[in-house]
Design a protein around this nucleic acid. Sequence first.
DNA 1: GGCTAAAGGCAAATAATTTGCGTTAGTGGA
DNA 2: TCCACTAACGCAAATTATTTGCCTTTAGCC
Lengths: 162, 162
Amino acid sequence: MLAVMDRTEVTIPLIAQRANVTPSTIYRRWGDLQELLADVAASRLQPETEPAEIGSVRTDLQAWTEQYADEMSSGAGRQMIRDILSVPDTANAEKCSGYTQQQLRVLIARAQERGEPFPTLTELMDYVISPIMYRILFEQPPSTDCVRGLVSRVMLEGAAKS
Amino acid sequence: MLAVMDRTEVTIPLIAQRANVTPSTIYRRWGDLQELLADVAASRLQPETEPAEIGSVRTDLQAWTEQYADEMSSGAGRQMIRDILSVPDTANAEKCSGYTQQQLRVLIARAQERGEPFPTLTELMDYVISPIMYRILFEQPPSTDCVRGLVSRVMLEGAAKS
DNA sequence: GGCTAAAGGCAAATAATTTGCGTTAGTGGA
DNA sequence: TCCACTAACGCAAATTATTTGCCTTTAGCC
């Protein structure tokens, strides 16, 4: 989806050339390459559409989560996450998490409208998103089955509670 | 615990000087500063001791987890995680996750010996470690209460199951 | 001992980063 | 309308980091 050059080839002088500005302009605006890449990555991670409406909200969550996991697990996705986390400033990381929460809130609202039982935002973040992201960052990207399992589990707990 | 210079001050020529080698030696061995820092961080994250034995295994888990969260949330801890994740090579990240699992396995074995009910490694990683790490990386470091809540919850589930 | 390969020192060449200074574009009054 | 004033940029010199070729050292291994 997103063509990305080998990161060792990307330099500020090169970007400056493509943008028809002098390197010093970019250095003054961003400081260094990592901060620039972090900003670029964060803007690219902004979702363009709301979670698709397929069937039950649970089905929608399932589908959305699988897509989320796939995108984040891809080479480009991992690269963007790395770019965001590489930088001391946490603003982009928080923005990124905010995007995810915004998407999940849409599903939560949908469930509430329809009266379907559904986990809270915190539950979804803690027990679905976090394990997926941990696996991507520190282990192997989660398989589809793994993602399904996480979703099933969080839905079961919600059901037990109500 | 670990004195770390401002990252903008750390350069390969400077490290080379301290190590009494020429910069080219370091460039040849590591390629760039990030890979060197990633290796350094991974070696520093290796735990030196097993989880303390305080009382019940649940108490031990509680204490160990709180310490884990504190260390990882600290400025130096976050820096080291960033250093590890900044690099394309995932070896150090996997090593880091391996250290955590190794610690948790000690607690699991202890619980098994004593016949105390206890979560599985996967449950601990997914429902305790992952949420903690997600919050550190993408949101605000978790409060002690938050960590306690995660531990309580994973213990409750284990109890319900058995 | 002598041979070989891996690693390091040294220094020149290249590339990136920082900085000072002059210019421009846009903004908000008088 | 015109005049400061500010923020941002271009340019180029100075500085610093990175790469590279070549030579020396070192450590194993016949």
